[in-house]
Computed example of a mutant assay.
Amino acid sequence: MLIVDPRETTRKITTPTTHVSSTRDPFIATKSAALTPDYMAAPFTHEILDATHWIPEERPAELAALIAARAATA
């Protein structure tokens, strides 16, 4: 779905979602996660791990636990 202006959309995400970000990522702003609840009609959690951009390589066990926890609630 192409969204030219996200403020104009009326459809909301209906799938439970977990956004995992990191404390030291120089590429992805945490503001995206802060704005996400505005577009959700389902449970949303934002988890922050102490890592750089490469969370799967730096914190594999913690990331796997977060994914398993979300999957267990589905």
Rank of each mutant, 00 (worst) to 15 (best):
E58M: 06
T30Y: 02
T36V: 15
R11F: 12
T15I: 14
P60V: 08
Y39T: 05
E57F: 08
E8Y: 03
E62T: 12
I55P: 00
F44I: 09
A51H: 00
K31G: 11
P26H: 10
L49A: 08
T36D: 15
T36K: 14
L66K: 07
P16W: 00
L66A: 00
L35E: 15
P37Q: 03
T17K: 02
D50G: 00
E62A: 12
S22W: 03
A29R: 07
L49E: 13
E62I: 10
E8F: 10
I55S: 04
P16I: 04
E47W: 08
K31I: 15
I28G: 09
P60R: 06
A33R: 03
W54H: 12
E58S: 05
R11S: 14
A64R: 07
H46E: 07
P16H: 01
P56R: 12
L49Y: 13
H53Y: 05
M40E: 04
A65D: 14
T52L: 11
P26K: 08
P16F: 01
R11Q: 15
A33C: 10
R59K: 14
E47L: 06
E58Y: 12
P43W: 07
P43S: 09
E57G: 06
T15Q: 01
T23I: 02
A29C: 08
E57V: 11
T45C: 06
M40W: 01
E47V: 15
R24D: 14
Y39S: 03
S22E: 03
L49V: 14
K31N: 05
A29Q: 12
P60A: 09
R59Q: 15
V20P: 01
I48W: 03
T9Q: 04
S21K: 08
A33G: 15
P60G: 02
T23E: 05
F44V: 00
H19K: 03
T17A: 06
I67H: 00
Y39N: 10
F27I: 14
T15K: 01
T45M: 09
A64T: 04
I55G: 02
H53T: 10
P26Q: 13
R11G: 11
T36P: 03
P43Q: 00
T9S: 13
T23S: 07
A42E: 01
P56F: 12
I13L: 15
I13A: 04
W54A: 15
A41Q: 06
S32Y: 09
A65R: 08
L35S: 10
F44M: 03
K31A: 09
T52Q: 11
L66V: 05
T10E: 12
A41L: 07
E57R: 07
F27V: 12
T15G: 03
E8K: 08
L49Q: 11
E8G: 14
T17D: 10
A41G: 02
D25T: 04
T18W: 02
A65Y: 06
P43T: 10
A68K: 12
T23K: 01
I28C: 13
A29H: 07
P60M: 07
T45S: 11
T52P: 02
R59P: 06
D50Q: 04
S21P: 01
W54I: 13
E58R: 06
D38E: 15
H53K: 04
P16N: 03
I67S: 00
T30I: 07
L49H: 09
A68T: 14
A33Y: 05
T18K: 06
A42C: 03
T18A: 08
P43M: 04
A34L: 07
